[in-house]
């Protein structure tokens, strides 16, 4: 059975878990790492149940999602439309199952509902649908769009006087091949949108990409350093981080929240499929159903021996 408890979160007066305080303690970091592990476990479970859905991208994003939803973002799961909440847009909408896991664990909906992912009538659609699931700040799934919507939200928050709202947008590195991303990158600095924080999940793989001398004969979506150079050239403040080092992720996101007049992009260097040994770094785990054996190995890798009902040994 899956524990339905959302777990307890230390919540500050402003709705943020321990927001605005000094550097995270070692215990807090360990707690966030455990959240990230749980997010990965729920991703594997849900995708296994649905026999569909993406794996590589959600897994690479899990640590950043944990840091955002359990520490950095000011949100109220029991009041998902709280007007002063921070916003999160998963521009790489195919990683929805990772976001759903974070939302469920954070208390937006029961964790058991994760097993409805992708099924008829579920609020957990293949790609995020804001009309179905409270807590989603934008519907996405067609790559390249989320950042534009993020600009709209950041501008709207400013125009409506909600100056405390921060808008986080997570993009894929492959997604950055979309022209719209660079239209948005051009516009945001014009409005000095320093409450807009883009995070590029730089896992060095896209769905298929170009053939060449890379892992499994595929090339990464960008040559090394290209993303930093491009975002810098477009006038953004650029941070780079090891997207699997929780102390570093927390630190960079908290620094990103302190605006300097420019929009910020965090290039989060990650490994596609992170946490499941045989998925890490392989483009073909972008989206692929697991065999029962692969499921058991994935769960074991994540420190969750599979119970009998899920196909493991008794």
């Amino acid at each position: 059975m899956i524990k339905s408890s959302a777990g307890s979160v230390a919540v500050g007066a402003d709705g943020s878990p321990k927001a605005g305080q000094m550097a995270a303690t070692a215990a807090e970091i360990r707690e966030l790492e455990e959240r990230a592990r749980r997010i990965r476990v729920e991703i594997i479970r849900a995708v296994n149940e649905a026999k569909a859905g993406h794996l590589g991208g959600p897994l690479s994003a899990a640590d950043v999602l944990a840091a955002l939803y359990f520490r950095v973002m000011r949100v109220r799961p029991d009041e998902p439309l709280w007007p002063d909440r921070d916003r999160f847009i998963l521009s790489k909408g195919h990683s929805s199952v990772g976001l759903y896991a974070a939302l469920a664990l954070r208390g937006y909906f029961p964790v058991e509902e994760m097993l409805t992912f992708d099924s008829l009538g579920s609020r957990l659609q293949g790609h995020p649908d804001m009309t179905k699931l409270p807590g989603l700040d934008m519907s996405t799934g067609s790559l390249g769009m989320g950042i534009s919507a993020g600009i709209g939200i950041a501008l709207g928050a400013r125009l409506t006087g909600r100056t405390g709202v921060r808008t986080f947008v997570m993009l894929g590195d492959g997604e950055c091949q979309e022209g719209e991303v660079w239209e948005a990158a051009m516009v945001a600095p014009r409005y000095k949108l320093d409450t807009l924080i883009a995070i590029v999940d730089h896992n060095k793989l896209q769905q298929y990409g170009w053939s060449g001398e890379g892992p499994d004969g595929r090339l990464p979506p960008e040559v090394p350093g290209e993303l930093v150079a491009k975002w810098t050239a477009f006038g953004w403040r650029v941070f780079e981080v090891d997207g699997h080092s929780m102390p570093a992720v927390v630190d960079v996101l908290e620094r990103a929240c302190v605006g300097d007049g420019r929009p910020t992009v965090v290039i989060s260097n990650t490994v596609k499929g992170k946490g499941v040994s045989f998925m890490e770094g392989h483009y073909y785990w972008h989206t692929k159903p697991m065999t029962p054996d692969e499921f058991a190995r994935a769960m074991a890798d994540l420190g969750e021996p599979a119970p009998a009902s899920e196909g493991g040994a008794r």
Binding site: P83, G146, S148, G150, G152, L155, E180, E183, V187
Partner: peptide, 16 residues
């Protein structure tokens, strides 16, 4: 940059 413009409009609409 029309594609971005329509996306920005969507974001604005969510803020009321």
């Amino acid at each position: 940059a029309e594609q971005n413009m329509l996306g920005v409009a969507a974001g604005l609409a969510t803020t009321g």
